[in-house]
């Protein structure tokens, strides 16, 4: 198990996308294990997965992305996986980049981020201004340049899996990345291409985005600096 990759697919009301997304991973990439975390969906996401006989963990209530992803890592920890990757259920992430991420990780990194902007330049939009600010905040507090901190496609090593599985305040967000870098985790980025989400609505409207930015900046710049790392 130690060299197996677990693809963690958190899904909340993704009935429109889940078939295509998971189907592609299962059919074309049988060398990876996967687990779908159904985060208390109110549509028939779970039903579709059951129909196909896919591996699914059913959360009885909605926990949000952080709680759902943590469930996936707890599963990975229980089973002793060596790598776990966060993979969105809405079709933005492409499975062909999992292998290069794993290869990068084998060079001795703890976290590998699938980044949209390693080689490409960031377009000048409002959303990218937010991304720049987060990059800046992480660079300011850790001295490490992370080009795409908001990328949801991240691979974690065995050590990180354990930490995420047990910890409080380990959401799959930029502030956790900054916190981990500060405590000695090595982070690498590799260039990936992401698609627009296929169907359904994103929750990222301007107000939510602004709230998210505020929370993340505040967390990275202030709160994370007086957090004590509990080693359990």
């Amino acid at each position: 198990m130690t060299d197996r990759v677990l693809v963690v697919i958190p899904a909340y009301n993704e009935a429109l996308n889940i078939e295509r997304v998971v189907g592609e991973v299962i059919e074309n990439y049988p060398m990876y294990d996967y687990v779908i975390i159904n985060d208390g969906s109110t549509d028939n996401t779970a039903k579709i997965c059951r129909k196909h006989g896919w591996k699914i963990i059913d959360l009885p209530m909605n926990l949000g992305l952080a709680g759902a992803f943590q469930t996936g890592l707890k599963y990975a920890h229980r089973k002793g996986y060596g790598y776990a990757i966060q993979f969105d259920g809405d079709g933005q992430h492409r499975p062909e980049f999992i292998l290069p991420m794993k290869e990068k990780m084998d060079q001795g990194y703890d976290i590998v981020i699938g980044s949209r902007f390693v080689t490409e330049k960031k377009p000048r939009s409002l959303r990218m201004l937010g991304s720049r600010m987060l990059s800046g905040a992480i660079w300011f507090t850790t001295g490490v340049k992370v080009n795409d901190p908001t990328s949801g496609m991240r691979m974690f090593s065995r050590k990180m899996i354990k930490e995420f599985a047990d910890g409080l305040n380990y959401g799959p967000e930029p502030d956790t990345i900054s916190y981990l870098i500060r405590h000695g985790a090595r982070v690498a980025e590799i260039p990936v291409i992401m698609d627009e989400r296929i169907l359904g609505e994103s929750y990222l409207n301007p107000l939510n985005a602004a709230k998210y930015m505020g929370k993340m900046l505040f967390s990275i710049l202030l709160v994370q600096s007086f957090r004590i790392r509990d080693r359990r």
Partner: peptide
């Protein structure tokens, strides 16, 4: 909240197991 989260996660994982 943390305890509830842990319980929900454990319930789901144990069921799967």
């Amino acid at each position: 909240e943390r305890r509830v989260t842990e319980l929900i996660q454990m319930l789901a994982l144990d069921k799967e197991e």
